[in-house]
Write a protein that binds this DNA or RNA. Sequence first.
DNA 1: GTCTATATAGGGATAGAC
DNA 2: GTCTATCCCTATATAGAC
Lengths: 224, 224
Amino acid sequence: MPADPATRRPARNTRRRILDTTLALYNALGEPNVSTTLIAAEVGISAGNLHYHFRKKDQLIGALLEQFIVDIEQLMPPDSWRAKDVEESWFLLHIIFETIWKYRFLFRDLSGIMSRDRRAGHRLSGVFNRAVATCRGICLGLAETDQLEATSAEIEALAHNLAVLTLYWLSFDTVRHPRRDEAGESIAQGVYQVLMLVAPFMRPVGRANIEYLATQYLTKQPGR
Amino acid sequence: MPADPATRRPARNTRRRILDTTLALYNALGEPNVSTTLIAAEVGISAGNLHYHFRKKDQLIGALLEQFIVDIEQLMPPDSWRAKDVEESWFLLHIIFETIWKYRFLFRDLSGIMSRDRRAGHRLSGVFNRAVATCRGICLGLAETDQLEATSAEIEALAHNLAVLTLYWLSFDTVRHPRRDEAGESIAQGVYQVLMLVAPFMRPVGRANIEYLATQYLTKQPGR
DNA sequence: GTCTATATAGGGATAGAC
DNA sequence: GTCTATCCCTATATAGAC
């Protein structure tokens, strides 16, 4: 750590700073509304310098998408994974919600991203499929330990519904309550909705537990 | 109907033709990727003429959004409405799915539309709220006729989940199966998913019926 | 690595003739 | 109502000095 006497600022990781502020701007204003000029200004560097680090605007989106995929794949267990209990499952969904929120700008135009960059599109379908697999793992885990009762067709349908809800709840809620900049409430209700989706398939004892958890989440938010 | 001898083409309803091809282009390529120049070319008129009919690009989106809202609000019954039976409900959801598909470009960046035009945003939240209300009407209708059994908290949660699923299923499915240009399969599976969402709350007899309906929908599609 | 200055393109929008 | 021609602006991207 070379200590230039207070002259030069961090500067080492300009790339990181660029990505961080870009992510913030994209989330706040939407990617199409953010120009490279604005990013440069916000980071406090010149447009030319920005271009040195990312030659094309697409590379910014690409890098952030890559970041997202790394983050989310790290969270999602392998396809063979099975949930042990309810708590583990909801904790998992909760942090997935948070990751989605962190990169929410991506979810504003998924098909746009996919059409611009075919490879990216392929990665994204992959993430979606893994989301379904994760939800399936939750259902199967609970079923195999006799906490949940459902036919395999029901489980399959439930897994898909869980995935849709998890991936799109925040978008849905944003439309109903625009200009919200903190996710707390929204995530809490999202988890609640997920719990209520699974509840009807739970056996009595587990169901009581899940409904208890649900009300816990519900009280986190002032009202609907 | 003045019959100019084969010289002038329909021309009367240029406005309609513009809107129709714009909708088609937006759906196919995504609104941000379609320039006014392209629209004019596709319609077979000049850019200047296009501008005569719609002074700003936003007015194109605005007009199509208005069309969508009119269409969808015509479909959605008033808040006091209650479903009579399962068939009526799924028919309703089915045509809502079709309308969403028809205007799917809007759903590619809802928050973008909302941030550009505040008034439009308000209209959209309204539609979403009405979607929830419609779903609520389905659940309450089935509950009041003893076909469905659920607490009011469960119904409330179910209504929201139904709305999310209905509004976002097609987006979800598009990510998993990009470059699909006809909606048949996708809608069929969407309806199936919706049915499976409600099934666990149905009383035995109704449940048999709903599961029968569900398999009907399922066979419409080759495989998952 | 970072800056300043500049090139280039494309899209939205306009003016005025027909 | 429709066309042609053109303007203007903004955003991306580049070149070259420090």
